[in-house]
Amino acid sequence: MSDRSPLIRITAMPTDLNPYGGVFGGWLMSQMALGAGSLASREGKGKAVVVSATDFAFPGAMAVGDELSVYCEILATGNTSLTIAAEALARERNGEAETKVASGTFKFVMLGDDDKPRPVRAVGGKWA
């Protein structure tokens, strides 16, 4: 694993489990969206909203007490949008073993104060 830093780190709790004792895929997706949204807001310096979520895979499972780390990277920058890949790794509660438990892609649109799409980057100190 590279020397990247997680955008989100959280421990799975009993309320995050399904009736079979596994962590809900929806909980994983929401944590990934929070991490990707943090990166989008930082990069675009403002309000970013999810407009699509695609390409999800759940190659591993995590248990209650496992620590989830979400890593994100920008795949593409449009005029008003950012496409961000998210990867979720679970670390076992009492050890160092990590398992990739989810991955997916989010598309965010930057919004201005009027809640309408605005450019990702300012031009000449102002939003174009």
Rank of each mutant, 00 (worst) to 15 (best):
E43F: 08
G22Y: 13
V51W: 01
L68I: 14
G21L: 09
L17S: 07
G124N: 09
A102R: 08
S5F: 09
A33D: 15
A97C: 11
G95V: 12
V123K: 14
V50F: 00
D115A: 13
G25W: 00
A86C: 14
A53K: 03
V64I: 06
I74Y: 00
D3R: 11
A88K: 14
G124Q: 08
K100V: 06
F56Q: 09
N79F: 12
R9H: 03
G21P: 06
G78F: 03
L89Q: 12
W27T: 14
A122C: 08
L111Q: 03
D16R: 04
S103I: 11
L34F: 06
S81N: 00
A36D: 01
E96T: 15
M110A: 05
K116E: 09
G35Y: 02
N79E: 10
S81W: 01
A12V: 10
F106V: 07
R91D: 01
R121G: 09
A76F: 07
T54F: 04
E96I: 13
A53T: 08
R4M: 12
E98G: 02
W27K: 07
M110N: 02
D66K: 06
G44Y: 02
A63S: 14
G104Y: 07
Y71R: 02
V64D: 13
L39P: 01
V123M: 10
G46S: 03
W27C: 00
V49P: 06
L39C: 04
T11G: 05
T99V: 09
L39T: 00
A76R: 15
Y71T: 00
G124R: 05
P59M: 11
A33R: 02
G44L: 01
M29K: 02
T105M: 11
I10S: 12
T83K: 15
A102H: 06
L17P: 05
V49F: 09
Y71N: 01
P117H: 07
A86I: 07
G124I: 06
R91T: 09
L28C: 11
I10N: 08
G21A: 01
M29E: 03
E43T: 15
R93S: 15
S81P: 06
E92C: 10
V64A: 08
G125C: 12
G26W: 02
D115G: 02
L82N: 07
A48C: 14
D66A: 08
E87T: 15
A36C: 15
T105F: 03
P19T: 08
A85M: 05
S69E: 12
I10L: 11
G46D: 05
R118W: 09
M1C: 10
D113T: 06
G112Y: 08
A63M: 14
M32H: 05
V123R: 13
L17C: 11
L75M: 11
K100A: 10
S103M: 11
K116N: 12
V51S: 01
V101T: 13
V49K: 04
K107N: 12
M1A: 13
V70Q: 01
Y71W: 05
F24P: 04
A53P: 00
V101A: 10
A36V: 04
T11E: 13
D16I: 00
